[in-house]
Amino acid sequence: MFNTTGFHKAALMASKPKPQLLHTIAETAVQSSVKRARILSTQSSMKDAFAKYAEYLNNLNDKRERVVKASRDITMNSKKVIFQVHRISKQNKEEVLEKAEKDLGHVATWHISRLVKELQGTDFWKLRRAYSPGVQEYVEAATLCKFCKTGTLLSLDEINAGLLPLSDPSLEPLQISNLDYLLGLADLTGELMRLAIGRISDGELEYAEKICRFVRDIYRELTLLVPHMDDTSDMKMKMDTMLQSLMKIENACFSVHVRGSEYMPLLGSNDPGSFLSGVPDIEL
């Protein structure tokens, strides 16, 4: 009896909290399953969303990579054109420029055309940093060819008109922005400096002076534009190098002026050796 009551009591005591416990367990189980379901759903929606972002970023990076590659090819081949132009001399002018122009045409048809379909819509400005170096180099090569041929500056409109036939009419044509044109032009003066020095050593002083005037014109015009450009620091740096190049041309012209009037007549003289031997410290 005692035993049973004791047992009963114990059972009662044990059973008393039991339903409560069960209840709380059930409650927490329900609660946590609800919570888990919600967390799972947010987790999967987050995953879905990020899968979309991942796809977007992959596509964008692939595209950027293609643009960078095209830009590198444009740079490389434009550089070749520039080197070709530097092979110019008094005798082979037409021949050299003809080849340079042909190569320049190839750069446009083979490489710039690759940019057209990548840079539709807002991508033109979005990916500018990826293609800008190549385009600048192309501008440099094209303006250098034009200058050697006619002595004039190839305008942006002329370049862009040349790019129109690259793509089929359904696409937006690629048109070089004025910023890239101006940055390319700033680089052009470095090449013109090399050209001027080359011409001077070839005896074409007049041509060098013409280059000098041309570079001065460009420098003066660009000075006015620098504060309005988008990325001023880049352009400012280019202006400094440009001034350096210009001064190199001017100094070369000056040296020839000062000394050229002396040795030029002697170039055709019958006996240059005797003249040189009399002046051991001459600077040639």
Partner: peptide
């Protein structure tokens, strides 16, 4: 050394450069 072209020509081009 007449490679420098005529003066008139270069004047005309410089004004078009300015315009651009």
């Amino acid at each position: 050394s007449t490679m420098a072209g005529t003066d008139a020509n270069s004047l005309a081009s410089s004004s078009s450069v300015e315009k651009q």
